[in-house]
């Protein structure tokens, strides 16, 4: 209830800075945001930072243990695992970084639309969405990939499509919540048009829920992408990718565990970072994640 500042003109920029400040004021949020920033930095500047060429094969250096020269050892083709781990997130971050906003946008649009329309149409759509969600995701993706092939131009729309569907539910639920509140009733009673009410009263409130949902979707999507790579449907060799690296090194687990460990640390630190940030973001925006969490 305390008045934070007298003249805070809450422009988009200042609200953004306020939210960032709020996130970093929590230890978990600060750690999360640092991890995400670190990974984004590596994804951009990795090629200049990597000590070795990621595709330089050297038969003399196969399966080396970690050393001063090769911090994370080398793989079965003698390539430097450290350099490959450093670069192993680029593809995943690029693909999911494009697919996530698309998923949130289309899922959000459809969800808000049906949330507003309500009635039978809405009930029917939700049945369809629920049925769809009950299928194992890997099955849905594989069907598509097997049909259309792999490669970025297939992966991005595929991921965006599938991960937009759960967003529909969130957007619809958030819309229902907001529509029931008195400020919407007040706007209706004043006689504002439908579009004005949607734009001014509804969207600003649903947007926050979608933002948090987007962050969550991103981490799920990263996992999915890495799993596809692991199964050989994602990135094609020799491009370094965590999922692919885990698949390659898996056979040598018993005597060269660093080959699996390094990409696992890379992937999981990014995912943990995103989750911590999403949690802190939800708290900063005042959204109860316990309610809004996807099923």
């Amino acid at each position: 209830m305390a008045v934070a500042s007298t003249n805070a003109r809450p422009s988009v920029a200042s609200r953004f800075l306020g939210v960032i400040a709020d996130i970093t004021s929590r230890p978990s949020g600060a750690i999360g945001l640092a991890l995400v920033t670190f990974h984004l930095f590596l994804a951009i500047f990795g090629p200049w930072l990597a000590p070795y060429d990621y595709k330089a094969v050297d038969a003399n250096l196969m399966m080396q243990a970690p050393s001063g020269a090769h911090w994370f050892g080398t793989d079965h083709l003698g390539r430097d695992t450290f350099s490959r781990t450093l670069l192993g997130g680029r593809e995943a971050i690029l693909v999911t970084g494009i697919a996530t906003p698309i998923a949130v946008l289309w899922g959000g649009f459809v969800g808000i639309f049906f949330g507003l329309v309500g009635g039978r149409l809405d009930d029917v759509l939700m049945r369809v969405v629920d049925a769809f969600l009950s299928l194992p995701w890997i099955l849905k993706m594989l069907v598509l990939i097997v049909t259309f092939g792999t490669g970025i131009e297939v992966l991005i729309p595929t991921l965006a499509f599938f991960y937009g569907i759960p967003v529909i539910r969130i957007a619809r639920a958030a819309t229902h919540d907001v529509v029931a509140r008195d400020f919407i009733q007040a706007a209706r009673a004043r006689g504002h048009g439908r579009m004005t009410i949607i734009q001014r009263e509804l969207l600003p409130n649903v947007r926050d829920a979608l933002l948090v949902e987007g962050a969550m979707r991103w981490s799920w999507m990263l996992l999915a992408f890495s799993s596809l790579s692991f199964l050989g449907f994602g990135v094609s060799p020799p491009t370094p990718d965590w999922g692919l690296m885990i698949a390659d090194a898996r056979g040598f687990m018993s005597f060269a565990p660093w080959g699996v460990l390094a990409p696992v640390i890379g992937l999981s630190s990014l995912i943990i970072g995103i989750n911590l940030t999403a949690d802190a973001l939800a708290k900063a925006l005042g959204i109860d994640r316990a309610q809004k969490a996807p099923v």
Partner: peptide, 8 residues
């Protein structure tokens, strides 16, 4: 409930 939390 009756004031939009996102509006000044």
């Amino acid at each position: 409930e009756s004031l939009n939390p996102r509006q000044t």
